[in-house]
Each structure stands twice: as C-alpha cells, then as structure tokens.
C-alpha cells in the first residue's frame, strides 16, 4: 500500500490536520510539564523530531523483516535506541538545557505519538514517505510545544526567549508547573472555538 499524498501534504498533515498535541491529544506530558519557556519547548521539540524521523526511517527500512507478532517490541527497542542517541548527545553538548528538561528527554521513549506513527504509517509505506511523515509529525509536535511555551512565557513572565518584552507579568500563575494543565486546556478550548466559528461561517 502506498500513500497517495505528496511529500508536502505529508508534512502539513502532521502540522495542521493531525497535530499531535492539539488534535490527537497525544504526548501531553511535556506539553504540561516543561513548556514554561519557548527555549524548553524548542529543545524538546527538536529531540522528538529527531527520534520520530529516524525511527520512522529505520522501521520503514526493515519492515519486511519484522514478524508481525513482535512488531510492538521492535518499535519500542528502535525508539529506545534513538532516544539514547539524542539523550547522550544533548547531555554532552547542551548540558544546561538538558538539566532543565530533566527526565523528559528519556521519557520520549514512551511517547504514544511515535509508536502510533510507526504502527499506522512507517510499517506500511516507503522510506521517503515515512521520512516526510515523521518530519511532519515531529514538526507538528515542535510547533505545539513552541506555541504553548510562547503563551506561557509571554503571559507568565512577560518575556520571549528570556528577553523582557512586556515589562510586566500579566499572569504570573502561568509559569507555575501546575498551570500547565490550565494553559493546555484553555488553548484547546480556544482552538475548538475558532474552528467551530469558522465552520459556522462556512455554512452560512
């Protein structure tokens, strides 16, 4: 079975129609836990992007040799290998950011979104298609993390990328860890509202 979408459609699908955070509501843990600043969101987004692309390509390459009954453990071990790679790389070259993200980089291994894309896409499709799909999903996650990080950093500490832009702190509450749930919930509701009013206007 081959997909009938071209590479651009595969990438935008991950960012818009099937955005992992806002649409599929998968892999929410880092979105709530550490997206207090744009930089944190960006770093973890890049790590997930890396793992997603490389795991998709790997599985797509070896899909003919995987026995269907052991496919889930194979996916898990493939992801674990790539997570170890990015984990050690980040620890070596970006120790400060790595210390802030703590356990969340290692936890990418249990992210539902990556396993799901391997199961639904990479194990059936060609290598280039899997690459583009992985890129789209990874970028979708990255965009979601950066958007949440942007909102939390701007409203919580009045800054972007650590630079003070507002001069005051509108909602200090937003950078507290437990506010992550509120921010994500409110943003989801907001996007639903926009979508609903957009659909209503389309009907009229």
């Amino acid at each position: 079975m081959a997909t009938d979408k071209n590479s651009l459609q595969l990438v935008t699908n991950g960012i818009l129609q099937e955005n992992p955070i806002f649409k599929l509501a998968l892999s929410m843990c880092p979105a709530v836990g550490i997206s207090t600043t744009v930089v944190n969101g960006l770093m973890l987004g890049i790590a997930v992007l890396f793992v997603q692309v490389f795991s998709s390509v790997t599985i797509s390459l070896i899909k003919d040799f995987i026995h269907p009954r052991i496919r889930i453990p194979t996916y898990t071990l493939t992801i674990a290998t790539w997570v170890t790679v990015i984990d050690l790389t980040l620890a070596a070259y970006f120790p400060a950011a790595y210390a802030q993200m703590g356990i969340f980089v290692k936890i990418i291994v249990a992210f539902a979104i990556i396993t799901m894309r391997l199961e639904m896409f990479a194990c059936k499709e060609s290598v280039p298609a899997s690459f583009w799909d992985g890129l789209g999903m990874g970028l979708g996650f990255l965009v979601g993390m950066v958007v949440i990080g942007f909102v939390r950093e701007l409203l919580g500490s009045g800054a972007i990328f650590g630079y003070d832009v507002l001069g005051f702190k509108p909602l200090l509450f937003f950078i507290l860890p437990s506010a992550g749930f509120f921010v994500v919930g409110l943003m989801m509701g907001f996007f639903n509202w926009i979508e609903a009013s957009y659909a209503k206007r389309g009907k009229k």
Binding site: G185, L186, F190
Partner: peptide
C-alpha cells in the same frame, strides 16, 4: 468548545 478534553485538563 470546552466539552471533552479541554475541561478535563482544567
């Protein structure tokens, strides 16, 4: 717009 998941998050 808050039905389902958004209210669960809150």
């Amino acid at each position: 717009p808050f039905k389902g998941l958004p209210i669960a998050f809150i």
